[in-house]
Design a protein around this nucleic acid. Structure first.
Lengths: 346, 346
DNA sequence: CTGTTAGCGCTTTCAC
DNA sequence: GTGAAAGCGCTAACAG
């Protein structure tokens, strides 16, 4: 049995002939450009529909001449996860240049709303598309909307600003990620009852807050034997995370589970090992050099991960599809919540 | 701070001028075509290197005229996982036709080596690339090698034939998948000790055998409290799987874990629920309509999954990259072992 | 062995 | 409003 997809191979010229107009007119209709009589538009659209005509992307790309420019606005500082995304962008360079695409990485203080907004505004005009690790703040929202209004395609990356009119969000559902973490902690603890600790960077960060929300949801509804302690804030720093956690472990002898919501993993692991005495189920986020080692050593039990390579490539592909007016393959661009344990380390 | 990738925008003509030859000669060198003096080859290659020249894929694609044809050789019958792959190929149809690619799906009895080999041989000539769900058998290996020798690009899909000279394998590491399943069963069972059952389609299938191998590895080394019962064979059929498992559960009261290696999931779930009496940790493979429901109901605890959409798209992209002589983004095309639990269902 | 040339199917001026 | 025509950068004949 055989089934063939995509039989067609028509060209603009064919459509033009069939609609009784010129190439240029079909092109104008295809791109919703003004200057065509409504009636002509209808005729041409009809011909396009009737033949389910697909313009040849390669030809379009070649004809337009000028290269497309995209910018990635990333946090300055040494967040390993963000560095991984940048590294994967670098790995795409041959792919990009073979398509005459240029990607510029701009680092900025994404935690300062006005600085971030300023960076975004400065990009207006010289970019076809922008991917931004965004803080959810009114002035950032405004800056994104301005970019969109100026015709720039915008995707939020890792951290979303749902209220802005960005074209797409490339990242995970953090509430679901928190729920997944909760289910893992609960299931891996097993029959035991006891307390569960949470270490976050800050509850003011949208993604952290959402993860904690999801985590608590599952804990409350499915693991009544486990009681969740108040959230510790480690500011994503190793030292501080270690201190706050060590203090907590000193006060509570029956901590059986730990959810590390953000970074500061090194400090968390230190506090845990210093406390000694009985295995604590430890679930955190992201696969880095460090978490990989902790997973292999059995110190960490699972990492909830969003694939940084996938995020980098998805952001580029989505921006490109948006710029070209192509449909987005939603299934392909959706970032999944990966559960990574020792045996399925990527 | 800003860093720019891919600054270049040279063309073949620039290289030709710099090397003191014509366009055609550069093209010949670029594609390793014969008929160029070794010395000229060197000069041209030097110019290409020196400028790290990247030919414009869109231009190349446009110039070659004829569309590329790929064939997917899939198992006949109603394996839901394979049907998902085919469905995702269907979803790519607009993407494919915008690139003037055609993908033909051929279904055949992949479990009969000679039939499969025959199907592959018949494809020789009229295809630029073939993706095949392959049985590992000498005559299949020979058929694959013949295709490769004829210049067709070949990728194995889901199930590999490592001994053949296929260009790429798109699928998971099944030993690691089995290990992951083992770790999950062991960890989710918790402190309890008892017996663990395995239901497979057939131990003669390479992927099933590898999964069982990995599963046993982990069980033996890490969960001494759990003893693995002899493998049951359900031929991937619901009825038979139910029967063999029901019989086993009747004989052993202390089964605490179950690994379903292949299909027949419906039957396995039936046998389990009929047996009643105490929760058995149930880990299986793939996210289908059925396993999704079982996960939500809490009957199944985890599914080890390979993303069928990713496999479909990766196979197409790899065939395309091979046909174009482009590098493959290995990280992108690698199929990961997904752990899917209720809260991270895709 | 090497060069010349005619497109591929679009986009984009520039005329009408 | 609409059309004609000149390319975009490469490939593939065909000459030499």
């Amino acid at each position: 049995m055989a089934e063939t997809l995509t039989p067609t191979a028509l060209t603009l010229k064919d459509i033009a002939r069939e609609a009784g107009v010129s190439l240029a007119t079909v092109d104008r209709v295809l791109h919703n450009r003004p200057g065509v009589r409504p009636d002509t538009v209808r005729r041409v659209k009809a011909a396009i529909e009737r033949n389910s005509f697909q313009p040849h992307v390669a030809a379009a790309e070649l004809a337009r001449g000028r290269a497309r420019r995209f910018a990635f606005v990333m946090p300055s500082g040494s967040n390993p996860f963000m560095q991984q995304i940048e590294a994967y962008l670098g790995e795409m360079s041959a792919w990009l240049s073979a398509r005459r695409l240029s990607v510029e990485t701009v680092t900025t203080d994404v935690f300062d709303p006005s600085v971030l907004a300023g960076t975004l505004e400065a990009l207006s005009g010289d970019c076809d598309g922008v991917a931004v690790v965004a803080l959810d703040h009114p002035s950032v929202r405004a800056a994104i909307n301005d970019l969109v209004d100026a015709g720039t395609k915008v995707v939020t990356l890792v951290s979303d600003v749902p209220s802005a009119r960005r074209h797409h969000y490339v990242g995970i559902d953090n509430i679901a990620a928190g729920r997944t973490a909760g289910a893992l902690v609960g299931r891996l603890v097993g029959q035991k009852s006891g307390k569960v600790a949470i270490v976050a960077g800050s509850q003011g960060l949208r993604d952290h807050a959402e993860r904690i929300f999801g985590f608590n949801q599952v804990m409350a509804s499915e693991f009544p034997g486990l009681s969740v302690l108040p959230v510790l804030e480690g500011r994503d720093e190793d030292d501080r995370s270690e201190q706050v956690l060590a203090r907590l472990l000193g006060r509570h002898a029956d901590v059986v589970g730990l959810y590390n919501v953000g970074a500061g993993t090194q400090g968390v692991a230190k506090a845990l090992s210093d406390a000694g005495e009985g295995k604590v189920v430890f679930v955190g986020h992201d696969v880095t050099v460090l978490t990989r080692r902790l997973l292999l050593q059995g110190v960490m039990d699972a990492a909830i991960s969003q694939n940084p390579g996938h995020e980098a490539r998805a952001a580029v592909r989505v921006l490109l599809a948006l710029a070209r007016g192509e449909p987005i393959l939603r299934e392909q661009e959706k970032i999944r919540i990966d559960i990574v344990m020792r045996d399925n380390l990527p």
